[in-house]
Simulated assay, not measured.
Amino acid sequence: MKVLVIGATGKIGRRVLKSLAKTHQVTALIRYPELQAEYEKMGARVLTVDVEKELDKGIHDATSGQDAVIIAATAGADGSSKEIELLDRNVAMKAIDAAKKNVSVTSSCSALMAPINRTLHQKNISTSCRQTMQPTSISNIAV
């Protein structure tokens, strides 16, 4: 199965990627080109995208040909409102629209407010929501 992990450099995304790379063809969408070699050593194909400048094209190119998309890009509980808007909302919504099927999202609860929460449920997107002091378990993410 071909799986795209968006946010692969975060705590959750990295664990998901490492686990999936053992048995699947995994692509990591990352923002930091200096991490490319590290993720290739884990067995992932790596796409580096500047999400502030190339989001539309980067997400479209990344989701093309994937069987599933896991969105683990999040600003986290301590993220600024700008980071939450960019990562938890914009990246997630662009990826959901581009992938159209087999999408799993993990995000901070505050970012999954309406309208994104309604959109996720209308499209039958699985979500894993974590409270500020309660990290999401990797076992809660549907692949």
Rank of each mutant, 00 (worst) to 15 (best):
A28F: 08
R45D: 05
Y39G: 03
A92C: 02
L4I: 02
E52F: 10
S137M: 03
G79F: 13
R130M: 08
C129P: 01
L120E: 04
A95L: 05
A62E: 04
M93T: 07
S64F: 07
T136K: 04
T27G: 14
S137E: 07
L20A: 10
D78R: 11
T23R: 06
S110F: 03
C109Q: 15
R89D: 02
R118Q: 08
G65K: 15
A62L: 12
L87F: 08
H24P: 00
N117K: 00
L4C: 01
A77M: 05
V49F: 03
Y39N: 02
S137H: 11
I141P: 06
M133V: 00
A8Y: 03
K11D: 12
S108V: 04
L47S: 09
V16H: 02
S64P: 00
R130F: 15
V46W: 15
S104W: 09
S128P: 07
E54A: 04
H121F: 10
N124V: 02
A44S: 12
K41Q: 13
S107K: 02
Q25R: 01
E38T: 14
K22R: 05
S128C: 14
K101Q: 11
K41A: 13
T9L: 13
V143M: 15
T9F: 09
N124D: 09
M93W: 13
M113P: 05
G7T: 01
G76R: 08
M113E: 12
G10N: 06
S80C: 06
A99C: 08
A77S: 01
L17Q: 01
T127M: 14
I6L: 00
L17E: 02
H24K: 03
A98E: 09
D88E: 12
A111W: 11
I84A: 14
A114Y: 11
K18L: 08
A72D: 04
R15Q: 08
T27W: 09
A68W: 12
A73L: 03
V91M: 01
R89K: 07
